[in-house]
């Protein structure tokens, strides 16, 4: 039995027949070929598959594609605009927030959710927000710095506008 889903992903509309058991992460990676979203643990522990569903950070290895029917989805591919990096992407670049880079898309998508709710987070609230995202390389220090960089940059650009 297949079910039709209609979703908006990074601003583009898609309509597909999917098996109910198809996980959203597999829909994004295998059907839409958006492979920036990674499968790490596949058990909703590591956060590498974090995307936004209706603006909320979501581990899409733990969501069925059919649950996202009618939803707006943003993946790491949808974060930059007109070739300009999102402040978080820039921050991870500037502050050496990654080594192997496998966890980075999930880290950035989770941090983007945090900055929506809390534009000027403390170090403690950054660490609390990222507790569902594992990095096995950096020891997290530079990830926290990268998020702080982005928060600062977003505050500056807010002041300019």
């Amino acid at each position: 039995m297949s079910t039709r889903i209609n979703v908006t992903v990074n601003g583009l509309q898609y309509s597909h027949m999917v098996e109910p058991r198809l996980l959203l992460v597999n829909y994004l990676r295998d059907v839409l070929r958006l492979t920036g979203t990674h499968v790490g643990c596949d058990t909703s522990s590591c956060g590498a598959c974090t995307i936004h569903v209706n603006g909320k950070a979501t581990k899409c290895c733990t969501l069925l594609a059919v649950q996202a029917d009618g939803c707006e989805i943003t993946t790491i591919e949808g974060l930059s605009h007109n070739g300009e990096l999102h402040p978080l992407q820039e921050g991870f670049n500037e502050c050496h927030g990654l080594q192997c880079g496998f966890c980075t898309p999930g880290m950035i998508m989770m941090a983007a959710d945090l900055l929506q709710h809390n534009p000027q987070p403390t170090e403690e609230s950054i660490r609390h927000a990222l507790e569902g995202n594992f990095c096995r390389c950096t020891g997290y220090q530079n990830i926290v710095k990268s998020v702080q960089y982005a928060a600062e940059k977003m505050k500056m650009s807010e002041a300019v506008h």
């Binding site: 909703s44 956060g47 974090t50 909320k56 950070a57 979501t58 581990k59 733990t62 969501l63 989770m110 959710d113 945090l114 609390h128 927000a129 507790e131 569902g132 995202n133």
Partner: peptide
């Protein structure tokens, strides 16, 4: 509520 799972889990 803030101690349940992690933020992504709390969103669902």
């Amino acid at each position: 509520a803030a101690t349940i799972g992690d933020m992504q889990v709390r969103n669902w």
